[in-house]
Computed example of a mutant assay.
Amino acid sequence: MMVALVIGITSGALVLGAWIGVRGWLSERAEGLLVAGAGGALIVSVMMELIEPALDVIGLPGTAGIVLLGAALFSAADAWTDRHMARAGGLGLLLAVTFDGVPENLALGTALIGTGPLGVAALAGSILLSNLPEAAGGAASMREDGESGTRIILLWTAVAALLSISALAGRWFLADVPDGTVEAITCFSAGAVLASLSTEVFPKAGRQDPHLAGIAVALGLVVALSLEQLG
């Protein structure tokens, strides 16, 4: 039940965000602040739920190496997106969300293996807060490019379905793998998520509200840290 609820909420945020973007209900400033807060929350969740548990299993050198590998591969994919989708507007953002969301949701699925409810809530909540404004901004851009509202919703729904499959794969197919495998995968996902924060999330938040973005990041971090301590 928890698996279906968490995955439904985080992936459903993409569809809800796309709908909000098509309607034009989210201002750029509000979008930037939400993204910044989500980024701050993700820093805590990634470190405490994905990276720290791996230290006791695969050690510091292995953990560091796999995190860096995940960051490097995401950055390479992001660079390819920038080169080949530079004029794609909302479609480019949709692709970027897909690159970002697959490792995030794989990490979410693996986090559901043996993690307490509050720990899962911290990670899922930060992903939700990131997905909603990203989808809203991408959908709004696609609308400005002349895409129909129906096509926009269908495209983002397809992405949400893909991300749900990624989370289910992380939860069900990695439950019985040997010790260290899940930790290695979560570290790889953590690296990709951290790279996405530096290339997609924080620069965007800074552009849309350069004065309050730092406060929003700190607020998101404090909220996620508070959830972790309650757990």
Rank of each mutant, 00 (worst) to 15 (best):
A77Y: 02
G149F: 11
L118T: 13
L162S: 08
A124G: 04
A86D: 07
W156R: 07
L123A: 01
L73E: 05
E31C: 11
I9Y: 08
S27D: 13
T199L: 13
A64L: 12
L93W: 01
L225E: 14
T81E: 02
E147I: 10
G17T: 06
L69E: 05
I20L: 15
I43G: 04
T186L: 06
G40K: 14
G62H: 04
D56A: 10
L174T: 15
L60D: 11
V217A: 02
A111V: 08
L91M: 07
F99M: 09
A190S: 09
A107F: 07
A121K: 12
A38N: 04
G170T: 01
N131D: 01
V35I: 10
G146F: 14
M47N: 08
V46D: 06
L227W: 00
L94N: 06
P178W: 00
S189Y: 03
V193D: 08
E104N: 01
P133S: 10
V3D: 04
A96L: 03
W19S: 10
A122L: 02
G12I: 01
P117R: 11
I9M: 13
I58L: 10
V159K: 03
R143I: 10
W172M: 13
A36R: 12
L128T: 13
L55C: 10
M48Q: 11
V6S: 09
G180M: 10
H84S: 08
G116D: 09
Q229S: 12
V222T: 09
R207A: 10
G39A: 09
R83F: 01
G119T: 08
D145N: 09
S141T: 11
A213T: 12
M48R: 05
L14E: 07
A38I: 09
D78A: 08
G17A: 05
L91I: 08
I58V: 11
V44C: 03
L128G: 05
A121W: 05
G39P: 00
M85L: 12
